[in-house]
């Protein structure tokens, strides 16, 4: 495994798997911003109103089910056990997990290493991985090198495109400071997406990772993604009232109404 690239800044996203409801807002916000962005120069749709609509997206949301993780197990069983037509054992409840995925702006971005034209590049100052459409020859090789499915070819223009980390927002001095954030982060209704500098241990995102822990995708491949997926928390459990006992009716005879005046 190669050693991680060190850029002075490592800009990226922290995505909270514990909070994401899988609403696709970030995916559409991304599509929307980039469809009109000068940096991305359009994001195509194919067969938009036809049989099999498709198109290029930089951020896609997938849903998974996780079962058998003791952290999320419970006594309840989806009702299958009690079905009269047979007892179907279901050990534990599974947990649905929504996973948004866009470019991770990897420290060790093989997508850049393999690119023959130099169209793919990783910015030394902040680690953002970008494609220069003016140089790309559309060989798809970088997409092959990406384990995370972050790159999609613009078939109309014949050039590779990918998440820009909204470089044309985060550095745009014409935007009010609060809006110098990726479109997907601003849109996310549950606040499951956070943008920041992972190289700075004091940053919002580094603090979150320190507090919550993260899980890395395909860690063994050694890409050292900058984006972090905040792990799912153990379910919050609430204490129960203990100092109570059943039998109200029996006690009613003795119960004295407390005078509470209006």
């Amino acid at each position: 495994m190669s050693t991680a690239n060190q850029t002075p800044k490592k800009l990226g996203l922290a995505i909270d798997l514990d909070t994401c409801v899988g609403c696709h807002a970030c995916a559409v916000a991304c599509k929307e911003w980039n469809a009109g962005s000068k940096m991305t120069n359009g994001l195509p749709d194919y067969d938009a109103y036809g049989k099999a609509p498709s198109g290029a997206w930089f951020n896609r949301i997938r849903n998974y089910e996780l079962s058998g993780d003791p952290k999320f197990s419970s006594a309840n069983t989806c009702g299958a056990d009690s079905h009269p037509q047979g007892h179907i054992p279901l050990s534990t409840l599974s947990k649905t997990v929504n996973v948004p995925m866009s470019c991770m702006h990897c420290d060790d971005a093989d997508c850049v290493t393999v690119c023959p034209t130099g169209a793919s590049y990783k910015r030394a100052e902040d680690g953002i991985v970008l494609v220069d459409p003016a140089k790309c020859m559309g060989c798809n090789y970088c997409a092959w090198a990406c384990p995370y499915g972050a790159r999609e070819l613009d078939e109309d223009q014949g050039v590779m495109k990918k998440c820009t980390l909204c470089v044309d927002r985060i550095y745009d001095q014409a935007l009010p400071e609060a809006e110098r954030q990726p479109a997907c982060v601003l849109a996310c209704p549950t606040n499951a997406r956070h943008f920041g500098d992972f190289a700075d241990p004091q940053s919002n995102v580094s603090q979150m990772v320190a507090m919550r822990g993260k899980q890395e995708m395909f860690p063994a491949l050694g890409y050292n993604p900058v984006n972090a997926y905040l792990s799912m928390r153990a379910p919050v459990s609430a204490p129960q009232v203990l100092d109570s006992k059943p039998g109200l009716l029996a006690r009613l005879a003795q119960r004295v109404n407390k005078a509470i005046s209006l």
Binding site: R62, Y64, G68, A143, L153, E216, F218, A220
Partner: peptide, 27 residues
Amino acid sequence: PSLNDALGFAEGRVRLLDVGHTHGTFL
């Protein structure tokens, strides 16, 4: 590598529920 590796889940077993697009994509 497994889907668990892909997502970084050490425990349990993960299965796909939905991919988030009905038709094919570049990928």
